[in-house]
Every structure is written in C-alpha cells, then in structure tokens.
C-alpha cells in the first residue's frame, strides 16, 4: 500500500537523522573509556599504560606534522615516568597481606602514628582535634572523620592511601615536594611496615558500621567538598579555603545524575582522571557497593520523580494506544461511506 511505503520513507529518514545526531555524534564527542575497575592496582596501572600509549600516538602525529615534537616528547617522558612509579608503588602495595592484619595492634599503631592529630573517630569517642573553620584554614579541606572509612573504601586502597596519599588519590599533577599533600606519607613506626599498614586497615574495618544508608555514604565520601543543595546538604569545609585548595569551587551535585548520567559517573568516580584529565578531584577509592550507594543518592536527589515518570508513562502511552485504535475504527466507519 502506498501509505505504508510513504510511512517507511518518513521513518527511514527520521531514523538516519536520529542515529547520526545522537548515538553517532555523541560517540565521537565523548570517546569511549574502559569501564570502572574496583581493583585499584589494575586500574592505576592500566590507566598509566593507556596514557603512555596516547602520548606515543601524539608523538607520532607530532613527528609526521613536524609540529610541537618537543612538547610531545616531554609528555611521553613524563607519562613513562608516571607509569614506572605507579607500577613500582602498586607492586609494593600488593605485598601487603591484609588478611594478616590485627585490629587490636592496629588501634595502637593508629594512635602512635599520630593519625589523631588531624582525624577524629567520633564512633570511638574521639572528636576531630580541630573545628571545621580551623581545619579548613590549616588544610584547605576538613580532614575526614574515620568512623566509616573501613566500610566506604577498599582495603587495599586504604593501605595505599596511608602509605602515599598522592599516588593512591591520583593527584600527582597537583602536589610535589615543594607543594606537599596535607596528609603526610606514612613511613612506618620501625617494625614491618607492611604489617603495620595491614593492622591499621584491620582496625578501621573493625570499627566501621556493617551497613550505611545512601546519604551517609554521600556525607562521608563526598560532602567535605561538594554541596548538594536539593538534598539540603552542604560541605563542612569553608568555601574560600576549599576553592583555594582545589583551584575552583567543586560543583554542586544536585543535578549531576541528569547532566552526566549513570555510566559517566560510574567511571568518573572510580577514576576522575579517565573522564576529566587533569581534574583536581582525587580518586577516592570507594568500593563498588559504596559507589552504587552514592549514585543512588544522586539519583534520589536529582531525579526524584523517576519512578513516578516510568509508571505514569505506561498508563499514558496505553491510553494513547486505545485512543488510536478507537480513532482508527471511527475513521474506517466514516470513510466507508465515501470510498
């Protein structure tokens, strides 16, 4: 029938436009990145390897154009160096046997290592040593209370973080010997350092709650820097100090779920550098479960009506289908008279 043929033509061209403008163009604008990996050793080394590969391609391109060759060479050199140090660092971390961690000893090590000079553990009756304003002024960002750290973060990541925050957090581009990270590296208390690290992690895990609500995960993992005003939650770090520390005020996260979408957030939170190279945001080391909870919270805040939308949608589309069938029957009846 002629009408169906015409309909076919209209649908065909509409689809071509849609596919070209949406999935195709977007795939070109936002290059594909590897999925989130919660094995942080693998993730770190894979990412650094990927960067070296990219720098090599850039250098080849620069050479063939004979433009900016020196810049590309330096970039490659820097990326190779980063890959080396990353591999060395994570191979060291791999030697730590977390299963041998002793929580009781860990508590002692934790006290002796001076962690409480900056961190509080409210659940154990240890409040933060400084109020928020003083802490903001001293560190740029309020140091986290560690009551929930054992639950939120991956154990191996925690050990890596204590050993060398800059490497674990992937903020090598921001800190150096002349501009050190506010949290100092842990060089051990004189015993077997790997055992000491395992003990501290075991201690943090032993005091962590078994479950946390989505918003508690957000509060502990994100809210020291980010506001989320639609959930009426605001960062406890003083704004000016934070902007100074991070380079700019970290964005409010109220609508992040609609502006970035789940897939982007999954890879971004797992390793911010992968999606936004050079960002000041650290890789925070959330476990898969905690990250899911953060994303759930973002969805509850920024897309609160999702369920209502999806269930109402069925009804409205259903209604329109019935309307269309009735309209068709009426049309057939009317046109029978004239055809």
């Amino acid at each position: 029938m002629r009408e169906l043929k015409i309909l076919g033509v209209v649908i065909f061209f509409t689809l071509v436009v849609y596919i070209g403008v949406e999935p195709f163009a977007h795939s070109q604008m936002h290059p594909h990145v590897a999925p989130a990996n919660f094995n942080f050793q693998e993730e770190s080394i894979d990412y650094a390897t990927e960067e070296v590969k990219k720098a090599e391609e850039k250098l080849d391109e620069a050479k063939s154009n004979n433009k900016n060759v020196e810049i590309a060479e330096n970039q490659l050199k820097a990326d190779k160096k980063l890959l080396d140090s990353t591999t060395t660092f994570w191979n060291e971390i791999a030697k730590i046997d977390l299963s041998k961690g002793d929580a009781t000893k860990g508590a002692e090590t934790f006290m002796n290592a001076g962690c409480v000079g900056c961190h509080g553990i409210k659940s154990q009756g240890m409040p933060s040593p400084m109020d928020d304003a003083t802490a903001s002024a001293s560190f740029g960002v309020v140091p986290p209370d560690l009551s929930t750290a054992g639950k939120l973060y991956d154990g191996t990541f925690l050990a890596a973080l204590i050993k060398d925050p800059v490497k674990a957090l992937k903020v090598e581009h921001k800190f150096s010997e002349t501009k050190p990270h506010p949290m100092p590296q842990f060089f051990g208390l004189g015993g077997d350092m790997n055992q000491e690290l395992a003990d501290i992690v075991a201690y943090l895990k032993s005091i962590a709650p078994k479950t946390l609500k989505d918003e508690e995960v957000f509060e502990n993992a994100c809210q020291r820097c980010h506001d989320i005003k639609y959930a009426k939650r605001f960062s406890n770090t003083e704004k000016g100090a934070l902007a100074n520390y991070m380079g700019s005020t970290p964005p409010d996260l109220s609508m992040m779920i609609r502006s970035k979408g789940k897939d982007y957030l999954q890879t971004f939170i797992n390793n911010p550098q992968k999606q936004l190279h050079g960002t000041a945001m650290p890789r925070v080391g959330l476990t898969k479960e905690s990250q899911e909870q953060v994303i759930n919270f973002l969805e509850d805040t920024g897309d609160r009506k999702k369920e209502e939308r999806e269930s109402l949608g069925m009804k409205v589309v259903g209604f329109m289908i019935i309307f269309t069938i009735l309209a068709y029957l009426w049309k057939v009846k009317i046109w029978r008279e004239v055809h």
């Binding site: 109402l312 949608g313 589309v317 329109m320 289908i321 269309t324 309209a327 068709y328 009426w330 049309k331």
Partner: peptide
C-alpha cells in the same frame, strides 16, 4: 484524529522514556 493518535503514542513514549 487517527494519525494524531498514532503520533502521540510515539510522542508520549519519547516524553517518558
């Protein structure tokens, strides 16, 4: 009415999903 109905099925699908 029939054509509009059919188009609105498509339109509301887009609106919700």
């Amino acid at each position: 009415f029939f054509v509009s109905g059919a188009f609105l099925v498509f339109y509301f699908y887009l609106t919700f999903y």
